[in-house]
Write a protein that binds this DNA or RNA. Structure first.
Lengths: 138, 138
DNA sequence: GTTCCAAATGCAACAATGTTGCAAAGATAG
DNA sequence: CTATCTTTGCAACATTGTTGCATTTGGAAC
């Protein structure tokens, strides 16, 4: 889907940084960190703009954020489901060797049986180890 | 168990910041962030020392680190298992309202069926929502 | 097309978490 | 007590993110 259409579907203004962010994410299969995304974005945009755009896009359900490690955060576009709704409820795999992150769309977290009175809004699963490439060489 | 004993069991030197960190963590049931731990530690210690001590203690298996949110990291002592081995493989619940973190010792992540060639070393599960206190009031 | 306004952007400053290099201080074995 | 190796403290810097405010821009009304 075109970046423009995605923004339109979510009732967001088609501004140039938003379009650049979505197109950058579309150009890669793996989730990317801020530095990688900025690099792929043609012109230079302010870091504040980047973070605010990410917040807006995340709240609208266009993409999701994965906190991999202490200071390592990656972003990925949400896949669109059958009814056009986007879905982000899947596990992520992080390779300690090549530091690549993989969305495991087929692994869904939970359901978890919580103590009485606890209400779940979302769950996040990060599996760490060696990916198929790195486990061969290691 | 005494802080001194814990260090001894893991063959770590009994230095004053390490003792202070362990005692601070023992004084609370919930995992704590850096600022909370520092506050509970009697004397002032350098932040570099804090981070290096945490790294050492984490590698030795004395405690574990939970990355809750973008810039929010909490630490908790590991429970000691039957054979004296410490264990950290449990899910965590984060309350969006009061921002408290709870270790869910009874919920263990996985096992997960990964694509061929992927090797798991560890998995982390964070469930977000409202805790039993805050869901009553909300 | 022009005008208008709310929304988005850019800049500056700041906050939280963490790392690296190096000299001084401390722990433990002998 | 002394020697030695580890740990600590300090300074500087890196990454990720937030807040306030002036300026620009998208998109709708005309």
């Amino acid at each position: 889907m075109q970046a423009q259409e995605i923004l339109q579907q979510h009732n967001l203004k088609k501004t140039s940084p938003r379009l650049a962010i979505i197109e950058a994410l579309q150009s890669s299969s793996a989730p990317m960190a801020e530095a990688e995304i900025s690099e792929k974005m043609g012109s230079h945009y302010d870091r504040t703009t980047f973070y605010r755009s990410m917040l807006t896009l995340e709240e609208a359900g266009v993409l999701h954020r994965i906190i991999v490690d202490k200071l390592l955060v990656k972003y990925a576009l949400n896949a669109s489901g059958p009814n056009g709704k986007t879905q982000a409820d899947h596990a992520h795999f992080f390779c300690k060797e090549c530091r690549k992150l993989v969305c495991l769309e087929e692994i869904h977290p939970g359901p978890y049986r919580l103590p009485a009175g606890f209400q779940t809004s979302e769950a996040e699963v990060i599996i760490r180890g060696l990916c198929n490439q790195c486990s061969k060489q290691g």
